[in-house]
């Protein structure tokens, strides 16, 4: 080691530091994975016995049944209003747009991350058009249709 010039020593130190950084990142990732596994395991041990995927599927199927039976026959004067309202509810996809815009892009060189953020931004903008446009149109329809409660 003694025959290293100072410059070489610095280079080696930098290399080592990079390696340490990578190892730390990997460790952090492992810790995250472990925490997830522990949470899932703890959930199972605590009697919940739910795989998150099973929970999601349950929610989806129950939502399907509720949605199917919740709607009552539509008065024919309200067809357009109810369609507008159902379409407006679809703008809940804005939630996904928000998540996609909010992702962390590690560096300006992270092309994939930047593209993903771009897609997310486009989705958020489109969903906002659908949300605000939908609310205003549905309100207009409610005001011109005879809605006794108004």
């Amino acid at each position: 080691m003694s025959d290293l010039s100072p410059q070489q020593a610095i280079e080696q130190a930098e290399k080592l530091a990079n390696k340490a950084q990578k190892a730390a990142d990997a460790a952090a990732a492992h810790a995250d994975a472990l925490a997830d596994a522990l949470a899932a395991g703890g959930h199972a041990a605590s009697g919940g016995a739910f795989d998150p995927v099973v929970l999601r599927i349950s929610v989806f199927i129950l939502a399907g049944f509720v949605g199917w039976y919740a709607v009552t026959p539509v008065a024919s004067s309200l067809h357009t209003f109810v369609l507008a309202l159902a379409a407006m509810l679809g703008s809940v996809i804005m939630v996904a747009g928000l998540i996609a815009v909010g992702i962390d892009v590690v560096s300006p060189l992270d092309d994939d991350g930047i593209r993903a953020k771009g897609f997310g931004f486009a989705a958020l903008t489109l969903a906002s058009i659908a949300l605000f446009g939908g609310i205003l149109v549905t309100r207009r329809l409610a005001s011109v249709t005879r809605t006794g409660g108004g």
Binding site: V59, F60, G64, F65, G67, A70, V71, L89, G90, V92
Partner: peptide, 12 residues
């Protein structure tokens, strides 16, 4: 919420 709302919108 996406699963819940999506299922509701789809079925209804």
């Amino acid at each position: 919420i996406l699963i819940l709302a999506g299922g509701l919108i789809g079925a209804s």
